[in-house]
Structures are given as C-alpha cells and as structure tokens.
Amino acid sequence: MSDVVREAALKSEAGLSARELYRFFRAGEEETLALRGVSLRVRPGETVAVVGPSGAGKSTLLSCLAGLDEPSGGEVRVGAVRVSHRPETERARLRARHIGVLLQTRNLVAHLNVRDNVRLAHSAVRGRPAVSAEDLLEQVGLAGRAHALPRQLSGGELARAGLAVALANSPGVLLADEPTGELDGDTERLILRMLRDRAALGCAVLIVTHSAEAVRIADRVIALDDGRAHDVSA
C-alpha cells in the first residue's frame, strides 16, 4: 500500500482495533504467555480504560497497540491500516503521524527543554502542525515552564509535559500508560479532563490504569487478567 493510500485509509476509518493478540516471552527454557488472544476496539470519540492486577499484561498490550512491540500473533490496526508485523521504521512512521503515546516512564528527551520536546514531536508531522508548541503548553498549563528541562519539573509538570508531547501530532489514537499514577487529585483530574477533551474531538483514547477516577470517566472498561481480556462495562 502506498503512503498516499495509507494516509487516506487512516483518515477515512479512524479508531484502533486489535484481533487475537498473543505475546510470548522466552528466557532460557522458560516461556511466559503475556497476552492470550486479546481482541478489542476503540472507536473514534471513545475512551476505554484497561484495568487489571500487576503482571496481567496491560503494559505489554499497550506496547503492542502502539507499535512499540510486535505481537507474536494477531494484528493491530489504526483505521484500515495494519500497524503490526511491519519493519520498525514503518511502525515508527505510522506511530509518529497517527498515534499519541503517553508512557508511564514519561516521553521526554532529558537534554531538551519542554518546548523543544514538543517541537521534536512536531518534526515527524507532515506539513504545518495543527497546534503550535506554545499553544499546546498553554493548554496543559505549562506556558511558563517552556524553557525548563525535564529534571527541573515536578511530577505533575512532567505528566502534563508528556501529554503535550503525546498530543503534538494531533493523533487519531491516544494511548496512555498509567498517566495519573503518581499525581495529586487536582492534577489527575486535569489530565483526565484533557484526555476526555481529545475524545470529544474524535480521538480514540485508551488508558491503562489503576485509578478509580480514570475508570469513572471511561465509556467502557476492559479487564485484563492472566493475559486475557473481558469487557466489564455492563
């Protein structure tokens, strides 16, 4: 599929889907099955929370959905385009243009200030970014911290700066791994409100979380246990 056709397919059928995802890890003679046939869909404008105990496979699932890791079986699609089982360079290009990822370990380059981190994410976008770095930092309440390095930010500021980077490409899909795990209540509510705002604009949002507040604001909840997924929204 050509780049032009792929871009058109992504725009015409937004959203995220995964079908029968399996992920094996092998260490010597030991084999761990982290994902066992996980299927899910996140529609445009929908917020889905993925919950489960530690070790259930939540972060592995998010990495496969983002194209950061390859599933051992099954496939991931953004819109009509398959993201999985492609060379890393192709997955990275698709991710940079269409998927925003907010990682638990944050997604900031240590030697760049906040504004330049956002501009670096902008550099992967074709043409002029939809939102400037300055506007994004204003939206997350960091306009006055644009020149600060990551090590100079508080935990709440790091979370907001990471979200600005994840939103820099105006993604159709936004994946967040424990985005409010170490935040105070006010900052947690701010981050979750921004995630809901992106969904209201048509973004497909998936949150891996232990937060009761994140579960409360989700449209659907998927429980992951021992590598298997169950929709528990009903």
Rank of each mutant, 00 (worst) to 15 (best):
S2C: 02
S2R: 08
D3W: 12
V4I: 13
E7A: 15
S12D: 15
A18S: 01
R19C: 10
R26T: 13
G28T: 06
E29D: 15
E29K: 15
E31S: 13
L33Y: 03
A34H: 11
L35F: 06
L35G: 06
R36W: 00
G37E: 04
G37P: 07
V38K: 09
L40R: 01
L40W: 01
V42G: 01
R43K: 14
P44S: 09
E46N: 00
T47C: 11
V48W: 00
V48S: 00
V50T: 02
V50L: 04
G52N: 10
P53K: 13
S54D: 05
A56L: 07
K58H: 08
S59L: 08
T60M: 07
L65S: 04
G67P: 09
G73R: 10
G74T: 07
E75L: 09
V76L: 08
V76M: 08
V78S: 00
V78T: 00
V78W: 11
G79W: 11
A80S: 15
R82F: 05
R82N: 05
R86C: 09
P87K: 07
P87M: 09
P87A: 08
E88T: 13
R93Y: 03
L94D: 11
R95F: 10
R95M: 10
R95N: 10
R97P: 03
H98Y: 15
H98N: 12
I99V: 14
V101E: 02
L103M: 11
T105D: 10
R106V: 13
N107Q: 11
V109L: 15
A110G: 01
H111W: 12
L112W: 11
N113P: 12
V114L: 03
V125F: 12
R128T: 14
S132H: 11
E134N: 06
L136H: 12
L136Y: 12
L137A: 09
Q139R: 15
L142Y: 06
G144Y: 00
A146E: 14
H147S: 13
A148W: 01
P150Q: 04
P150N: 04
S154G: 15
G155D: 06
G155L: 06
E157H: 05
R160N: 05
R160F: 06
A161D: 05
L163D: 14
A164T: 13
A164N: 13
G172D: 04
G172I: 02
V173D: 03
L174T: 09
L175R: 06
L175C: 10
L175K: 07
A176H: 03
D177M: 07
D177E: 10
E178N: 09
P179Q: 04
G181A: 15
G181F: 02
L183G: 09
D184I: 08
T187Y: 04
R189Q: 13
L192Q: 05
R193Q: 08
R198S: 14
R198M: 12
A200E: 14
L201N: 03
G202K: 03
G202H: 06
G202V: 06
I207Y: 02
V208R: 05
T209S: 11
H210Q: 14
A212S: 05
A214I: 02
A214N: 02
V215A: 12
R216K: 13
A218V: 04
D219N: 10
V221H: 01
I222E: 03
D225C: 01
G227I: 03
G227H: 03
R228E: 14
V232N: 05
S233V: 07
A234E: 12
